[in-house]
């Protein structure tokens, strides 16, 4: 066990051991155990539980819906993140910090309230609800509502990741490209995008994890109609409350697996971004 010198005075060994033991114990009980339990419960009767759980057409419909919602909300928020970070990081204008605050709002609004404000807008008592209903278009208790609230709760992920990264990288390379005769889109695709690729992927992965797993907001607008408007997390809830606990854990383990994969990718990307920063510092030396 050693401590890097730049981190000051080394603590006595007994302090180190005590704190490390507390750390490992706390993380093991509070973070690792719940995840372990999911897989333990799901695999209690072996893979049989999965076979039974996946025979249910509602399970497949939930998987489909979750993938559909993710496939819409992630790209949409990625495009927004790219546009917002270009406008905010590459230009100076008044009101920038206000705009940054507004983009962060969805993080400050709790999931249930996020869902609820969409009900107020599109529900039958809502602003647009009656009109849309007259046209035969249903938003609340239907797929469009689920997509909308998922977009809302995952709104800031990509932008939040890209804005600081692009601000840090500055405008020099883009100005050089423009002075060499590159068009705007050429500058973006050949110069900016390669420089932000890891940060972009990082944001997309976080956005994706949240989009797949969102529960509170979606449960408000979906109505949990089995086989129709239940996403995977809602399907888990339905199974669990219906006392089909093994199946609930089997489906939950699928989501947990996605979570673990996200974590692994995220760790790898953090390492990548750190490496890129180091290179950047080297080039600017």
């Amino acid at each position: 066990m050693s401590v890097e010198n730049k981190h000051g005075i080394q603590d006595p060994l007994w302090v180190q051991w005590t704190l490390i033991t507390i750390t490992i114990g706390f993380v093991a009980i509070f973070l690792a155990l719940p995840v372990a339990i999911i897989f333990a419960e799901a695999l209690k009767d072996g893979l049989k539980t999965y076979a039974i759980a996946l025979k249910d057409p509602a399970a497949w419909s939930a998987i489909h819906l979750t993938l559909l919602v993710t496939a819409i909300s992630v790209p949409v928020n990625t495009v927004f993140g790219l546009a917002a970070s270009w406008a905010i990081a590459k230009f100076e204008f008044k009101g920038k910090s206000l705009l940054l605050t507004l983009i962060d709002i969805p993080f400050a609004v709790s999931p249930v309230i996020s869902g609820f404000i969409y009900v107020l807008l599109f529900g039958l008592q809502g602003w647009f609800g009656q009109t849309l209903s007259d046209w035969g278009f249903k938003v609340i208790f239907a797929v469009p509502g689920i997509v909308l609230v998922t977009i809302f709760v995952t709104f800031p992920f990509v932008a939040r990741e890209l804005i600081p990264l692009m601000q840090e990288q500055g405008n020099d390379e883009e100005q050089a490209a423009i002075s060499l005769g590159a068009k705007g889109w050429q500058t973006f695709f050949y110069v900016t995008l390669p420089n932000i690729r890891w940060g972009l992927l990082y944001g997309v992965i976080l956005c994706n994890a949240r989009a797949m797993g969102e529960f509170g907001a979606v449960s408000v607008v979906s109505g949990s109609i089995r086989g129709k408007t239940a996403t995977l997390p809602l399907h888990v809830e339905v199974l669990y409350n219906g006392f089909n606990v093994p199946a609930a854990f089997a489906m939950a383990s699928l989501l947990a697996l996605v979570g673990l994969l996200t974590l692994a990718l995220k760790t790898y990307l953090e390492w990548k971004v750190k490496q890129q920063r180091r290179e950047l510092a080297l080039v600017n030396e």
Binding site: D172, E173, Q175, A176, A177, Y190, V191
Partner: peptide
């Protein structure tokens, strides 16, 4: 049609 050389080079790192 100017050739501009930036103080910190502004080379395309990738």
């Amino acid at each position: 049609q100017v050739g501009f050389v930036f103080q910190h080079y502004a080379l395309f790192k990738h």
